[in-house]
Simulated assay, not measured.
Amino acid sequence: MNTTGGGAAAAGPRRGQPRDAAAAAALATYDRRARIPIILSAVLPLIVVPEQGNWIAILINVVSWLVFVADFFVHQRLFVNYLGTRLGRFDLAIVLLTAPWFLLSGAQGGGIVVVLRLARLGRLLIATKGVRHLFARLGRVAIVAGAVLLVGAAMAFYAERPVNPEFATFGDAVWWAVVTLTTVGYGDIVPITTAGRVDGAAIMIMGVALLGLLAGSLASFFGLEPKSSGAEPEPPHDPVLAELAQLRAEVKELAGLRDQLAVLTRQLAAGDKRAPDPGPE
């Protein structure tokens, strides 16, 4: 029997990993349910600044801080020595530094508080896989959209400027490209040349495609995509689940060896019963 592999499999999860399979399952459920509250708690305090007498803004900032406090304690409970990891210490620093100190008399946060609250967005990008994936996809969409805007605006500007006074500056061309790409179509600036209209049609088609990509990314992030029932489940990539699968395989192997040993024992017992007794000399 391979005792080395068994000893490695029997070792507990390392620091920063779920404590066991139940903790990993609970963490997956928590991440799915807490995704939107954590995003709102990271974004709203940047928009709604607490002011004296504005109890709604104060309540929003306090509740958002409590969400991050709860998130820290959930991770501390489900992970092995979460506070000993860099992410755990980063979470603790965010919780302490972004506490509602403004409730204290004379405490003023100033610009440093805004910077610290921006760190919450950084925490989302670092720790949340779904948010990282969403921002990665949105980043690619933004790059393509920016390229379409600049190229389309430049083509329309050089095609329309000599004959169309509505394209007086490059800024007017960019504004027209934005309105066309987003399929809003205000109609305040309209191309009149063939090249300008072809350019506008291309921007419209790209706008519809980019909006579809954006909608698909948001649907995937919020779990609105239909799940195919016939697809095979992917094998778990979590180290704890992999170790548990290895333990199950070894237990199954031990059970097979036990059954073989039981069969051999019965065969030996049957052989002893069939052996003739030696007669008296």
Rank of each mutant, 00 (worst) to 15 (best):
G185P: 04
T193P: 00
P162D: 12
T183Q: 14
W176R: 13
W175P: 13
F222P: 13
A219Y: 00
V141Y: 01
G200C: 02
Y186D: 15
F221E: 02
G212A: 08
V144G: 02
R132Y: 08
E166N: 15
D238R: 09
G196N: 07
L149Q: 06
G146T: 13
A215Q: 06
M206I: 10
S220F: 03
I189Q: 02
W175H: 15
W176N: 10
V163Q: 14
A245Q: 13
M204N: 08
L150R: 12
T183R: 12
A173K: 04
R197N: 12
P233N: 13
H133K: 13
F157K: 00
G152N: 03
A168D: 12
T180G: 05
T180Q: 02
E160D: 08
R197W: 04
L149K: 05
A209G: 06
A147M: 15
I205C: 02
T169C: 06
P165L: 06
H133E: 15
A156S: 14
S217N: 06
P226K: 08
G139Y: 06
G185A: 10
L210M: 04
L213A: 09
A201R: 11
F167W: 05
G146S: 14
P191V: 01
D199S: 13
P235R: 14
A142P: 12
G223Q: 04
G230H: 11
D188F: 14
G230R: 13
V184Y: 15
F221T: 03
V174E: 08
V179K: 03
A156E: 03
G200V: 00
E243S: 14
A156L: 08
A168V: 11
H133P: 00
A202S: 10
G187P: 03
E225W: 03
E232N: 08
I192D: 07
A231Q: 14
V163A: 15
Q246M: 13
L218Y: 10
A219E: 00
P235H: 12
V141K: 04
G230W: 10
R137F: 02
H133R: 14
G223C: 04
L211K: 10
G216V: 00
E160L: 02
A202D: 06
L244P: 05
T183K: 09
A177Q: 00
K227F: 09
V198A: 12
A136Y: 10
L241V: 12
F170M: 08
D199T: 14
I143P: 03
M204E: 06
E160H: 03
F222T: 11
W175G: 13
P233T: 12
V179N: 15
V148P: 01
V148Q: 01
G196E: 12
D172S: 06
V198W: 03
A154T: 12
R197P: 01
T183D: 11
A136G: 14
E232Y: 04
K227P: 04
T182N: 07
L134V: 10
A245G: 14
A159K: 00
H133F: 08
A136L: 15
P236F: 10
A215L: 09
T183V: 09
V184W: 15
L181M: 11
L244Q: 11
I205P: 01
G216D: 09
V148F: 06
P239F: 11
W176T: 07
G207L: 05
D238K: 08
D199M: 15
G223W: 01
Q246N: 15
T169M: 05
W176C: 10
G212M: 04
A173L: 05
V151Q: 03
V141L: 10
V131D: 02
E166T: 13
G130R: 09
